[in-house]
């Protein structure tokens, strides 16, 4: 077979070496950030930290986590990500199925499609959106974090294209058996689209987990902040060229180590979840199991 040939073996060695080098290059900065987060402030401020901590210290993590808002915001983030992602997936799947039909099967499909795509490109900007949120009474409500984000056109287009990969023969057979569109969607399309769902769930989840600006803008109380917003307020994204600050603030604020720790605390859950989702990307698993 082909994978016994010499040329394939040579290619294989080079391929693995190449990909591994690439992977290492991708990890180095993160290792550096990790090292900074575990170093003493004096060493970090002096840019003396490379890939290994200097004067090991957990202060930065303590400073971030030993805060009465931390646990609460973590919980809000978990809720937001779970509910928000579920909502996005539901809306996306429901919208992607009709849009994946050919115009001859579903008249009006193209009109719908362009209605969706239009909003991908044009938007009214911050001011009208803020007024809308205010008028809808969503201000300072948890719902403001998930409801406005429930339609994600980019994901709908992606899902729609995955749905198109589902063999037509399956659904035609089902229709002949008298199945409805609901049956076809939930019993044929969805089970066949687990890799797609995993992908979309990942994208939606990461988006929800990392979003912070909406929390800052639409929530007034720090107790209501999701983790990403809370982390933004622990540090530091300060315009250093303005001169409105004093020594007390600088002592508190200019902490590279906290900044670095924050990245880790924020990214860790995503990094943990990822390998579990990965199994759905493994080739053949899904189709193979459905085909029998």
């Amino acid at each position: 077979m082909y994978h016994k040939t010499l040329s394939w073996r040579v290619f294989n060695v080079f391929n693995i070496a190449f990909l591994s080098v690439l992977a290492v290059i991708c990890v180095i900065p993160l290792v550096h950030v990790l090292a900074v987060s575990l170093s003493a402030k004096s060493a970090a401020d002096a840019n003396l930290v490379g890939l290994w901590p200097v004067d090991f210290s957990l202060e930065a993590y303590k400073a971030t986590i030993n805060n009465k808002y931390f646990l609460g915001s973590l919980w809000i983030s978990v809720m937001r990500t779970a509910l928000g992602t579920a909502l996005i997936l539901l809306v996306t799947v429901l919208a992607a199925y009709p849009l994946s039909k050919e115009p001859r099967e579903f008249r009006g499909r193209s009109v719908y499609a362009w209605l969706f795509v239009f909003t991908l490109i044009f938007n009214g900007g911050l001011v009208p959106f803020y007024i809308l949120i205010l008028k809808l009474g969503l201000m300072n409500k948890f719902a403001v974090l998930i409801i406005p984000a429930m339609v994600n056109v980019w994901l709908i287009v992606l899902m729609m294209n995955f749905f198109r990969g589902v063999p037509r023969a399956l659904e035609e057979a089902a229709f002949i058996d008298g199945a409805s569109h609901w049956d076809v969607l939930f019993r044929i399309y969805l089970p066949l689209s687990l890799p797609a769902l995993a992908t979309l769930g990942l994208f939606a989840g990461v988006w929800h987990w990392n979003s912070w600006f909406d929390g800052l803008l639409y929530l007034s109380r720090k107790e209501d902040y999701p983790l990403a917003t809370y982390l933004q307020t622990v540090i530091v994204s300060r315009d250093m060229s303005s001169m409105n600050f004093t020594i007390e603030e600088m002592q508190l604020l200019s902490q590279k180590t906290i900044n670095a720790a924050q990245i880790f605390i924020g990214a860790l859950p995503v990094l943990i979840v990822y390998p579990f989702l990965q199994r759905y990307f493994i080739k053949g698993l899904v189709l193979g199991s459905v085909k029998e």
């Binding site: 539901l90 809306v91 919208a95 009709p98 909003t119 938007n123 009208p128 959106f129 409801i147 339609v151």
Partner: peptide, 21 residues
């Protein structure tokens, strides 16, 4: 049913995208 399936997304789109447009 296809129209109905599009309803949630469409409602969200109109409220949160088309109105602020």
């Amino acid at each position: 049913p296809l129209h109905l399936m599009l309803l949630p997304a469409l409602a969200g789109l109109i409220v949160f995208n088309y109105v602020p447009l």
